[in-house]
Design a protein around this nucleic acid. Structure first.
Lengths: 204, 204
DNA sequence: AGCTTTACAGTCAGGTGTGTATGTTAAATG
DNA sequence: CATTTAACATACACACCTGACTGTAAAGCT
């Protein structure tokens, strides 16, 4: 029973959506194509029609992640605002807010945090790494502008400040996602951010 | 050909040691018992004599990790030194030094960072979590003593300072281990630590 | 010295997941 | 309207890994 193009695209999305739920629940290496197929209401044959194998499915799932504000963040960080550190803090806090309210993003990040990148999935790790490097570059640039304006504490360099912020963000998100959301991400995360940015700031 | 108790214990250690190398190379879920057996120079039968299954082997590997200075760190952090923050910085820096020079510890931490904790291995994650909680308590206590002496910056609480330090440490180690040791852990890590501790410190 | 048990080596059945090949139906195409 | 082809479902082959079972030779006990 051949479907129309639109229907095919719909089942493709169904498969990706089902993979997201199944990978989240059972872990990537533990999940079976049959699991995904059952969750999507299709057979494995359908999955192998749309995707080459499990690794490919995982890659496509990763690529389908809505990263809408990627560019927005970069553009905002490159804006010529006077209070650079305030902008950085606000952007980071907004990122936490988004994560706190978007369950799909939570699931995908959890999958990414928990999965085993040895073997076939190493390509995904490399992609993540390159994305991370991009973030670091824009962050460093922002901190460099803060330093030019004398807003960055004398003991910090743009690079070390960017690293500290990124590690803080990673730490907050990892702990929240992996350890059962035992605190309020938005409020406590924002508070931690405020303290760190405050410590990065030059004494007035 | 039955071995003596000492020989049996030796092969048990060989198996654990081989598991460490194999798990590091192929990842826990990707490695097979046959792989481990081959690397250890025994057959799978021998492994199943000493360990119930792969999960059990992994747990025993985890338990066999040399964590000698665990208590030392705690005792040192509880010492009544005047410069609490300096002690904290030194202890953390020593931990980085140890990691930088101990390849076995590097492998085990890499395994722990990369492996998929969904399913059978979730018990390991819980154990890690409880160990982490213990660390946090002693760290918080140390920062609390620093706060009492007025050494902690006013915008920091003992808890938030402990979190910040732990996330920093995790971030440094994760990036170094997962992303191919692209920087010098001991020197750059210590530098980052110095900056962070400096920012936690009360202005003199 | 003889019996029991230990510490393995080897083998085997069985389940499980993967990838592919084939079948089927309806949409596209002309 | 006939043919092709897309979008799956079904079936199959096979590699593979696990756990359990069996064999065995030496250690340890009495």
């Amino acid at each position: 029973m051949r479907r129309t193009k639109a229907e095919a695209e719909a089942t493709r999305q169904q498969i990706i959506c089902a993979a997201e739920r199944v990978f989240f629940k059972k872990g990537v290496s533990n999940a079976t194509m049959e699991d995904v197929a059952h969750a999507a209401g299709v057979t494995r044959g359908a999955i192998y029609w749309h995707f080459a194998n499990k690794t490919d499915l995982f890659m496509e799932l990763y690529k389908s992640v809505p990263l809408p504000q990627e560019d927005m963040v970069a553009r905002e960080l490159e804006s010529e605002d006077a209070e650079v550190l305030t902008v950085i803090e606000r952007v980071a806090a907004e990122w936490l807010d988004t994560l706190a309210n978007d369950e799909q993003r939570q699931r995908i990040l959890s999958i990414l945090l928990r999965c085993d990148y040895t073997g076939e999935l190493s390509a995904v790790l490399e992609k993540q790494q390159s994305v991370d490097d991009g973030h670091m570059r824009t962050l460093e640039a922002a901190f460099a502008r803060a330093a030019e304006k004398g807003q960055l504490g004398t003991c910090w360099t743009p690079k070390s400040a960017a690293s500290a912020l990124r590690w803080m963000m990673k730490g907050i998100c990892s702990e929240w996602l992996l350890f059962g959301r035992r605190f309020d991400l938005a409020s406590e995360g924002r508070e931690g951010l405020r303290r760190l940015i405050g410590s990065l700031q030059a004494a007035k």
